[in-house]
Write a protein that binds this DNA or RNA. Structure first.
Length: 670
RNA sequence: GCCGUCGUAGCUCAGCCUGGUAGAGCGUGUGCUUGGUAAGCACAAGGUCGCGGGAUCGAAUCCCGUCGACGGCUCCA
């Protein structure tokens, strides 16, 4: 969204609104002086330059939506007198308000929304009122959620603000739109429950979700997109296309792929195998079970045992079904002694992992209990890090360009939060014996030097810094824009996560590239360096699709199931006009199948119209109709995914289609 | 795991509030029809109403429990 640059001069002693050009006023919601966003009613105490914030900018929308949250709260309070407000922030595409009240249902939203419209139409002025902490405490004495916030955010003796519209007041720093008439295009969307401060032991709250836009039209557009997203839900499309099933009694949370779904999967797996080989990754296979001792060594057991499928055999040995592929790949790396000349050693596998997700967390293919990662692990020398990460980034771009016309990719660099490192595996330097040890503080009872038992340990971030620098370098030298997120790193190292935006503007986290110095240490991995000495390699963990399941979701939802032909489980559906042309239909189907085109001939005793109607849910790439005309001229009458019809000579058609599939064309050629 | 909503035929859903042993459309099967690009006609099969328990003469319907799905919260190596 382009930020509109509108700067105006504002005069000391007069509200900003008075200096805003009259024609702009309806779309301006607030202003920025320096770095601070302020209300239009703000009166500067000296002449200033102010930047106008219009409702269609990112900041403007947030202000508008936050004001809409206030409006929601006002409406709720006017209907449900006992409701107690907690907080109502804007979100990425709307807002919510958390309110302690009796549960309400979707039907109740209409009533609340109607009240909101009324209030909006009254054009209530939204006023900012400064108060002392003591006055705030008095005003919100009946609401301990607000009191908590006042205590937490306003120091004794300090002042803060309340926003008032009509009889409604909320503790809030603002800014807000000038009056409620700016909130004409609002919509309440859903209701959910939550707990105060996200803590299951605290009070239950009702969360009302909604959104707001500067005008009716953009709201309508948003709602249309939202409807479209619902229509494209992969669970619905997967059902229609007969791709997969879930059996909630036999295997809750585990997808089972039917033939059509498995066909798509194998296309994706095959594509990834080629891509990996092109970039020098070698395919391996690892078992689905390992003894728990390995998971203890890798550190996964300590951190994730609650999410692992663990079991014990009658002889007493304990096993875990793999929740990760890396220890398996490490085990393969360990089988032999590598020379520095052999590095990088790069293994990949379409590795299915099993994670026990808690009951409320599973959902469709986006959060299954078993999923397959296009997993790769590289073992490198320090001097190979930047080059290898650069190569992985290129691989990612190549992969996504094959599936999407012009994929929009967003890069996040997740780094350690040095203020808050207990959860990370880092090196500690012992002040009394100078030993360096690698410890994750959160996983041990007490932080002690393993060599001398001293508690005088200093964190040493040098390895984290080197890894982070390598990732930054790879991004920067390729001119890739990225954002850094402190505290988001994996426990063993920093990572780059790559998000892709889909057709409906939603962004999905897919690829991840992680650097890891610690797993090689845990497993005492080594290679022989130029000096003939053992040296510890660096590991890169990377996945490109992320998981096949998630990637399938994105493909299905962004193409609404109408996949590029090479990925389509039903490439040609041959319909003879009547059974008297079954023979020619068969000839056509055979010709297509001979070229490896997935073809189904429907010579059943049904009308052509019904066949076409019923096959649509399967999203065939091409519907091929044949009758007297076609049989005579050896042609086919073809309808593509966009309902475009055309007639082709049979061989020409088969040839073109074969080419379209071989070249993995995204668009249809006919 | 927590909160809320929901669970009836392969699919989509009605019936539940106000108890009297189950309904529609699509799909499936059979027959008729032999058709020119999204609804030709007829008949039929198909459900112990997620599972378990309770109160009732009687439960899909009311109550309790349980499993599961969905929307959120928390989590996501």
């Amino acid at each position: 969204m382009p930020e509109k640059e509108k700067k105006i001069k504002v005069k000391k002693g007069t509200p900003i609104a008075q200096s805003v050009p009259r024609e702009l006023l309806p779309e301006i919601v607030a202003a920025r002086i320096g770095d601070t966003a302020v209300d239009l009613s703000f009166i500067p105490d000296r002449d200033e330059e102010a930047e106008l914030i219009s409702a269609d900018t990112e900041d403007g929308l947030r202000i508008l939506r936050h004001s809409a949250a206030h409006l929601t709260a006002q409406a709720v309070l006017s209907i449900y007198k006992d409701a107690k407000l907690n907080a109502g922030p804007p979100t990425e595409d709307g807002f919510y308000y958390d309110i302690q009240m009796d549960p309400i249902s979707l039907e109740d939203l209409g009533k609340i929304e109607a009240r909101m419209k009324e209030i909006s139409a009254r054009k209530l002025k939204i006023e900012r009122i400064e108060m002392t902490r003591e006055d705030l405490e008095k005003k919100f004495a009946q609401n301990r959620f607000k009191l908590d916030k006042i205590v937490a955010k306003v120091k004794p003796g300090q002042r803060s603000t309340v926003y008032r519209q009509g009889d409604f007041e909320d503790f809030c720093t603002g800014p807000h739109v000038p009056d409620t008439s700016y909130l004409g295009a609002v919509k309440l969307l859903s209701v959910a429950s939550t707990n105060y401060l996200g803590d299951v032991n605290r009070e239950k709250m009702v969360r009302i979700y909604g959104t707001a836009f500067p005008d009716r039209k953009s709201l309508e557009h948003y709602l249309a997109m939202r409807d479209e997203a619902l229509k494209r839900d992969h669970r619905k499309i997967g059902q229609e296309m007969d791709l997969f099933t879930f059996n909630s009694e036999r295997a809750p949370g585990f997808p089972l792929y039917a033939p059509n779904g498995q066909w798509i999967r194998s296309m994706m797996v095959g594509f990834m195998k080629n891509l990996n080989e092109k970039y020098g990754w070698q395919e391996v296979w690892t078992p689905h079970l390992f003894k728990d001792t390995m998971w203890k060594q890798s550190g996964h057991y300590a951190k994730y045992k609650d999410n692992m499928y663990l079991f014990q055999l009658s002889d007493g040995d304990s096993y875990a079904i793999k929740p990760m592929n890396c220890p398996g790949h490490i085990t393969i790396f360990e089988r032999t002694m590598y020379s520095y000349r052999d590095l990088p050693v790069k293994y990949f596998e379409a590795g299915t992992v099993y994670r026990y997700e808690k009951s409320g967390e599973v959902g469709g293919l986006t959060r299954p209990r078993a999923f397959t990662i296009d997993d790769g692990h590289a073992f490198l020398r320090m001097d190979q890090m930047v080059a290898e990460i650069t190569a992985v980034l290129a691989m990612v771009r190549e992969a996504f360009s094959a599936f999407f016309e012009s994929p929009e990719m967003i890069y996040d660099l997740s780094v350690i939060d040095k203020e808050n490192y207990d959860n990370y595996l880092i090196s500690y330097h012992c002040n009394s014996c100078n030993t360096i040890s690698d410890i994750r503080k959160a996983a041990v009872e007490e932080l002690r030097c393993p060599a001398c038992g001293s508690t005088g340990l200093e964190p040493d971030f040098r390895r984290w810094d080197a890894a982070t620098d390598a990732l930054r370098m790879a991004l920067q030298s390729n001119g890739i824009p990225y954002k850094e997120f402190p505290g988001e790193a994996a426990f063993y190292g920093p990572k780059i996560d790559i998000h892709v935006k889909d057709a409906l503007g939603r962004s999905w986290q897919l690829s991840t590239v992680q650097l890891d110095f610690f797993m090689p240490i845990n497993f005492e991995l080594s290679f022989i360096n130029e000096q003939g000495k053992k040296e510890t390699p660096v590991m890169v963990h990377r996945a490109i699709y992320g998981s096949y399941e998630r990637f399938l979701v994105i493909l299905l939802e962004s193409y609404a199931g109408r996949l590029p032909t090479w990925l389509s489980p039903l490439q040609c559906y041959v319909v003879p006009v009547s059974q008297s042309f079954s023979q020619y239909g068969q000839k056509v189907a055979e010709a297509l199948k001979a070229r490896g085109i997935r073809t189904v001939l429907d010579d059943s005793n049904e009308t052509m119209n019904r066949k076409i109607r019923n096959v649509r849910r399967l999203r065939p790439s091409y519907i091929v109709v044949v009758g007297a005309k076609e049989a005579e001229s050896n042609t086919v009458s073809v309808r593509n995914r966009d309902e475009k019809q055309s007639v082709h000579e049979l061989d020409r058609f088969a040839e073109a289609l074969e080419k379209e599939i071989d070249e993995r064309r995204i668009q249809q050629t006919l």
